[in-house]
Amino acid sequence: MTTRIGLDYQGFQRWRRPFEVGFWVVMLTANTVFNGLVSWFDHVYHSSGTSNLEPWVWEASSSLVILALVPFVVAATRRWPLRFDTWRQSLQVHVLLTVPFCLVHVGAMVGLRSLAYLAMGSHYRFGNVPVELFYEYLKDFRTYLSFVSLISFYGFFVRRLQGEASLLAEPDEGPPVEPVDRPERFLVRKLGKEFLVAARDIEWLQASGNYVNLHVRGRDYPLRATMAGIEERLDPSRFLRVHRSYLINLDHLAEIEPLETGDARLTMRDGAHIPCSRRYRAQLRERFGETPVGA
């Protein structure tokens, strides 16, 4: 059972990457222009000791370094996500990460400013290092945690659009409808709606951090579990581990292509290519041999 919604996840995926990159570029560009104008009025219009270019050099150098650090913040947020069950531990880690974030930001920013001043025939002075560094840290502390909050909120929106899977819970009263240790169906939540996905409809699974993505008819539903844990709960006659990060549904396997390295490339019925490492290839030999399977 599916529900039609105004914003489709697959359509969103087509422009997701340009949107994400463009968002940071546009936001930091607008921030640079705004802060540059404020700084220009403060240091040029209201005084005579600063040249017209200096405020723009200050803001542009800072924004360029922060833009370069955005992938680091994104990676850190994925590694330590702010979720209801782990937000306290993750927040502690992110508070500690504000220190290297600030040190890299300030160091690279001062380097860019020094080069810019040198090109203008001048010399850049950072000022009293402990005082200025503490001042910059206060700003970077706010910036880093603001970015983490923004990325976390965006990730929450994407997950709501994409949908999240979970195992069916054992009922409070009475026997479970199906075996809890080997579920026949998974519960998927999407934009406030819930529907069931049959285990046999899962085409392949991929490990992704603390999650395992269930690939079903062109969609990925993240399930909070380990690959080893979910492998134990799937039917071994249907599902087979082929890689450290992949499990496949043998009913959806179309072709096995041996590689010179001893690994193999698996082609699924939906056209997806799944790696098969030498460690697991023997199991495929036992099931199918080396010839293409499926139709």
Rank of each mutant, 00 (worst) to 15 (best):
F101E: 05
R113E: 00
V26A: 11
L118C: 13
G111D: 11
W87F: 14
L91N: 03
V129S: 09
V110N: 03
L28C: 13
L69H: 05
A116I: 03
L96S: 01
T29R: 11
W87P: 10
R88F: 13
W87Y: 13
V70N: 01
R113G: 00
A108M: 15
Q89C: 04
L67I: 11
R113P: 00
L67S: 12
F34N: 10
N52E: 02
W58Q: 01
T86E: 12
A76L: 15
L118E: 14
F101V: 13
A119F: 08
S47Y: 01
F72L: 09
R125H: 12
S39A: 14
A76D: 04
F34D: 04
R78K: 10
G36M: 10
V70D: 06
H46T: 07
G107S: 11
V129P: 05
P100C: 11
V95P: 02
V93W: 07
S114K: 06
S62G: 06
S48K: 04
M120N: 14
N35S: 10
S39G: 06
L37W: 10
V93P: 07
S47N: 05
T32F: 08
E20N: 13
A60W: 14
R78S: 12
V57G: 03
F19A: 06
G49S: 12
G127N: 04
A76G: 09
V57A: 14
M120E: 07
W15K: 14
W24R: 06
T77E: 09
L53D: 06
L97W: 10
G49K: 06
T32A: 15
R17G: 03
N35Q: 10
H43R: 11
G121H: 08
F41L: 04
A76E: 04
Y45F: 15
A119M: 08
S90E: 06
G121V: 15
S62A: 12
S122D: 14
